[in-house]
Design a protein around this nucleic acid. Structure first.
Lengths: 215, 215
DNA sequence: CGACGATTTGAATAGGATCAATGGGAGTGG
DNA sequence: CCACTCCCATTGATCCTATTCAAATCGTCG
């Protein structure tokens, strides 16, 4: 994007540090700011019919609720810090201004939105086409790949959060881990070892059109 | 968008009529064309782990797989005509060209993508936060609203398709309709009458952040 | 009229959720 | 440093939802 637009956004932005478990936004609120996670972790979650679910975990450096800001609409999701986090807040007004003025910025946003869209589509496929155990197995393989494919995974979130993220209860997650034991999966607190990646992959049936970050 | 860009796209495009149940694209294929439904209905669906699910039904006039075209990536979903349909095929190359050249077009695409993104997020909330019966109840209320809120709904698709769309089996859909009978829902073939919209809404708990088209 | 596919219904099963209780750290305050 | 508390995670038992398998019914189309 143009230097000037960038400067304008940075000038208008606030960089703040928030403690863990602080609610940043609530679904239904008007989109006053675009949020960018600089450090830490932010949980996006949602409510309906008396239930709550984790929609996504946002890690540095990523923006969230971009679509709402551009549309000048209300947030569809709530957000809270999962741990102490440094977050950049950019007034929506400025984002929309830069979007209207700066062609390069507008195009960059398209790429970002296209990626976000495809990510959610993949998640929907994951949810509708796989059982809970399959989802967990694939998730473990993904974490392993992200962490260097050593066969030793450190879970990036609380188990209750992971359970909600992949669409199950904490109890069920615990049982799903047990189900994976015969496939070489051992759990010790937040550490998971994958003894036989092939066996696990055979169960999980990983699919690039669901599990690959890019593409 | 600019007249010239529009002309260019139209010039390069093919308008074709396809019979029902014709597979237009398959997930994993490179995105060679952007598709626009002019008449008829197109089903987007996906496979994984030996299962298949309906992801969306696209009606006129709407484009599908825009994100894949822009990213020059592979399709995440397959598509088939649900009935005889007239479809506009625009070569991806031309779309990306227009996107690069025409600023107004690029901005229009942002709006389109932002809407698509928010739609999928809503669907994910629907899936994760509601039971099958609640999803059906809300879907019926939505159809009723779309069709004029007369309390008489004509199902826009086969029941098996609707079942897959809202994430259940055809058998379960049939039973879900029976579950809704005490709430004033009567089914006769493709026609559904809603005798007591309040009772149904009380069960469904419709939520603008999930069920409203706009917002 | 006959065949096929869609829908419905029934029965049995499986997958997940809920409720309840226990064990296990991490953090707090004395 | 230790005891206490709280919350997370696990386990057990049970319940409920939804899927699967099977069969019957219905409607449509050739």
């Amino acid at each position: 994007m143009a230097e000037a637009s960038f400067e304008d956004l940075v000038q208008a932005a606030y960089l703040q540090t928030f403690p863990a478990q602080l609610e940043l936004i609530a679904e239904g609120d008007p989109a006053d700011f675009l949020y960018v996670v600089m450090e830490g972790y932010v949980e996006l979650f949602a409510h309906a019919n008396g239930r709550e679910t984790t929609m996504a975990m946002v890690r540095p450096v990523n923006a969230f609720i971009l679509a709402a800001v551009l549309k000048d609409a209300v947030y569809l999701m709530s957000a809270r810090t999962a741990r102490k986090s440094r977050i950049l807040l950019i007034p929506s007004e400025n984002v929309r201004e830069a979007f209207a003025r700066d062609d390069a910025f507008a195009r960059a946003i398209v790429v970002e939105l296209a990626n976000s869209y495809r990510t959610v589509v993949k998640e929907q496929k994951d949810l509708k086409l796989r059982t809970a155990v399959e989802r967990l197995a694939n998730r473990l393989l993904r974490y392993d790949a992200e962490q260097g494919a050593h066969g030793t995974v450190t879970l990036p979130h609380d188990k209750r959060t992971i359970a909600s993220l992949i669409g199950m209860t904490p109890e069920n997650l615990s049982r799903a881990f047990n189900t994976l034991k015969p496939y070489g999966v051992e759990v010790t607190g937040p550490t998971v070892t994958i003894a036989d990646a092939d066996a696990l992959a055979n169960l999980a049936q990983p699919n690039p059109l669901i599990d690959d970050e890019t593409s």
